[in-house]
C-alpha cells in the first residue's frame, strides 16, 4: 500500500489490519511516534492524518485516508516548528516519552485555535497523558507558542 508521510510517498507491504504505528515504526523506520498503551488511552502514538490528531496505535493502516504527519514532519528547512521551539524554551520534557504525542496535539490545537484559553488546552490535551506530570510546562509552552505564532505568522 502507498502512504504519504511527512510529504513523502512510501510503499509498504503491510496487512491492512496492522496498526498505523507498527507500519510507521517497524516498516517505515519512523520512530518518533511512541507505543504507550496500545488502546488509544495515552496519546504517545499521536500523529496527524489530514491535520486531525489520531492515535496511531489503534488506527488500522488500511483505514488511513489522507496525509500523515509525524513529529519528524513538524520541523523543516527553517529548523524547529514554533511549537517544538516553545517546548525547548519552556524545558517541558522530563523523561520525554510522551512528548512527541503531546507536541502533535498541541500543534493541531494551535492550528484550530490560535489563542487557546486554559479550557481549550484542557479540552485538547487531556487525551495525552504524562506520567512525569509536566502539565504546567505543557500549558506554558502552548501559550508561548501561541504568542510566537502570532508574531511570526508561522
Amino acid at each position: 500500500m502507498r502512504l504519504t508521510v511527512n510529504g513523502n510517498p512510501i510503499e509498504l507491504d503491510a496487512d491492512p489490519d496492522m496498526p498505523l504505528l507498527w507500519a510507521l515504526r517497524d516498516l517505515a523506520g519512523i520512530t518518533g511516534p511512541k507505543f504507550g498503551c496500545g488502546i488509544a488511552a495515552c496519546g504517545a502514538c499521536t500523529v496527524l492524518v489530514d491535520g486531525t490528531p489520531v492515535r496511531s496505535c489503534s488506527l488500522p493502516v488500511g483505514l488511513v485516508e489522507g496525509e500523515i504527519v509525524t513529529i519528524e514532519g513538524l520541523s523543516g528547512a527553517d529548523g524547529l516548528s514554533v511549537v517544538q521551539q516553545a517546548w525547548l524554551d519552556e524545558q517541558v520534557p522530563q523523561c520525554g516519552y510522551c512528548q512527541a504525542g503531546q507536541i502533535m496535539s498541541a500543534h493541531a490545537l494551535l492550528e484550530e485555535i490560535s489563542d487557546p484559553s486554559d479550557d481549550d488546552i484542557d479540552n485538547a490535551m487531556a487525551g495525552n497523558l504524562c506520567r512525569c506530570g509536566t502539565y504546567p510546562r505543557i500549558r506554558a509552552a502552548i501559550k508561548r507558542a501561541a504568542v510566537e505564532k502570532a508574531k511570526t505568522g508561522a
Binding site: 488509544a40 499521536t46 490528531p53 496535539s105 493541531a108 490545537l109 485555535i113 485538547a124 490535551m125 487525551g127
Partner: peptide
C-alpha cells in the same frame, strides 16, 4: 473539541 475529536480515537 479542537485537537481531541471523537474521531481521534
Amino acid at each position: 473539541n479542537a485537537a481531541l475529536r471523537c474521531t481521534s480515537c
